[in-house]
Every structure is written in C-alpha cells, then in structure tokens.
C-alpha cells in the first residue's frame, strides 16, 4: 500500500541513518539532549514533526504503529500522522496498545503497561527543562554539563511559594539515572511514575528545537521534589463515567451549556477495552452492550 512516490517512511535513508545515530547516542546517555539535523516535515511545527522523524527512523515494514494525541487515537493530529505513515511506509496500524510495536504519542503514556520490544515516541515542544528560568542555551548546556540543577528546584520553590504546593501539573521535571534533568514532554505528572523502570524504549523528539533524547528500558527516573513537599502523581478525583476506572487519567468534558460535566478516560483504547470487558461507569447507557 506504500505510495511509491515516497521513500519508505517519507525520509530518505541518509536522513534516517543520521537520526538513528542521534537515537543511539541518546540511549547511551539517558536524558541527554542530542542535537540532530531536524528536517522539514509535511506538517506544521507543533504538530509532531520531531516525533514523526523519530518514528520514521524507527519503523520497519513489519512494525505495527499506534498514534495517540492526549491519549486518544481518533483526534485529528493522531489520525493524520497515522495516515501519513500508512501512506508513506505502508505499515500496519492499530489502536490497541498491547498490539503496537511503535507508539507515537502526544502528551500521554498509555495506561496499559508497556512491554519489552515496544517503542514509545514522544512529541516534544520544548526539550529544555531549564528554559523557563535561564533563556541562554549556552548557559543551560553548561548547567547540564556541570550538573548545576539548583535552578530546577527554584522553579518548584516558586510554585510552592505562590500556590502552597507544587502546582506544576504537566511537563514535570525528572532526573534520569541520577544524572540529567529532563523534561518528559507535556505529559500529566500522573504519568511520571510510568517513565521509571519501563520495559519499553522511550524516545523523545523535538522537531523545531532539533533535539532528541531517550530513556532506555528499566531506567531510574525520579521526579524532582522537596523533602517536605514530596512529588504526588495526582489526577482528577473521580471515576471514569464510561468504564468506571478509578486508576486512570481522566479528561473533563463539558456536555452542555449548563455546565454539566463528565469525566472519561483520556486513553481511549484503555477505556474501550474495559467497556468490552463489561466494566460500566456512571453514565454508561443502561443495559447497552458495546
């Protein structure tokens, strides 16, 4: 089904080799931002150009690709990237987390635990966790080099001073293998614990900023915090209104113009799988079978 007008997975072989070299370096130095020669992709910056380049460099014809945007397989961004690789690489696609070999994600880690052999590719808007307080790239690189990470805690200090708690809810900074401080991309901090000890390969691609970084399988990943304000992986204090799950990350959906709300799993595959197993939530159609 590959469109013969394109090379496999859109990018030419030299470019993919260049990206693979960057990926290998990134895996060898967990959490370190490797510069790479980011290419123009046929989609706008901010729509996953970094993630798409990493995915292109990882895909083989035997792979089965899943693409999610905020946990959902059916949103515009996910659909268009999935179609892009269907057309340019001809790979199989799936919405089932367990069946995918490569998963490109924007802002979520799937609820279903990943396993060895799977690759999770994150789309990253701003790879530099220190950028918020130190705008000079020369300086942030030096700070990484010398492990000067006091500034990261200044950011968390400011949070507590202003809000009484660490209010950072997404893109919550982590330290990888006791060395590099890393921005885990704008995933909710609820997902941070899943970064640690994960059997899958986690790759991060920032297209506009031309950086690639990685967390190898079973890595030590620690969310930064204070002794007296420890990290908490929080979520909305509800159950999913469709599948009744109490342990998954929820989206809040306004359902009418009178402020009626419902909470549903952000991971659509997880939610659908539970419903298929017969789990029901507060707003599930009574007696209906999926």
């Amino acid at each position: 089904m590959t469109d013969q007008a394109y090379n496999f997975a859109y990018l030419d072989e030299q470019t993919k080799r260049m990206i693979r070299r960057a990926l290998l370096k990134a895996l060898a130095i967990p959490g370190y931002q490797v510069p790479f020669a980011s290419r123009e992709m046929p989609m706008p910056y901010g729509w996953g150009t970094g993630g798409a380049q990493v995915t292109a460099a990882c895909l083989t014809p035997d792979d089965r690709l899943k693409v999610i945007d905020q946990g959902a397989d059916d949103t515009t961004n996910a659909v268009s990237i999935r179609r892009f690789f269907q057309r340019t690489a001809g790979v199989e696609t799936t919405e089932r987390t367990a069946e995918a070999t490569v998963i490109q994600t924007r802002h979520r880690i799937p609820e279903q635990p990943l396993s060895e052999g799977q690759i999770l590719v994150y789309q990253v808007p701003i790879p530099e966790p220190l950028r918020f307080l130190e705008p000079r790239e020369t300086e942030t690189r030096k700070m990484h080099e010398l492990e000067e990470y006091g500034l990261m805690h200044v950011k968390l200090y400011e949070d507590i001073a202003r809000h009484g708690e660490i209010a950072t809810a997404y893109a919550y900074p982590v330290r990888v293998e006791g060395r590099y401080v890393m921005d885990p991309s704008p995933i909710p901090k609820f997902d941070n614990p899943k970064l640690a000890g994960n059997p899958a390969i986690q790759l991060f691609g920032a297209g506009r900023e031309a950086r690639i970084y990685a967390v190898p399988p079973y890595s030590d990943v620690v969310s930064l915090d204070f002794e007296d304000h420890p990290f908490v992986a929080s979520k909305a204090d509800h159950e999913c209104d469709l599948c009744g799950s109490a342990g998954s990350y929820l989206d809040e959906v306004i359902t009418d113009d009178r402020g009626t709300r419902m909470f549903v799993c952000s991971d659509t595959d997880f939610c659908a799988s539970r419903q298929a197993q017969g789990h029901r939530g507060r707003l599930s159609p009574q007696g209906a079978t999926p």
Partner: peptide
C-alpha cells in the same frame, strides 16, 4: 521571587527542604 533568589544558592548546594 525574593525568597527564590535568596534560596537559589542554597538549593544549588543541595538544600531540599522547602
């Protein structure tokens, strides 16, 4: 903030108690 400015050097040398 002023507190964060003063605290930065402390945090830089490892202070982790808010």
């Amino acid at each position: 903030s002023a507190g964060g400015n003063v605290g930065e050097r402390l945090m830089a040398v490892g202070a982790r108690n808010y």
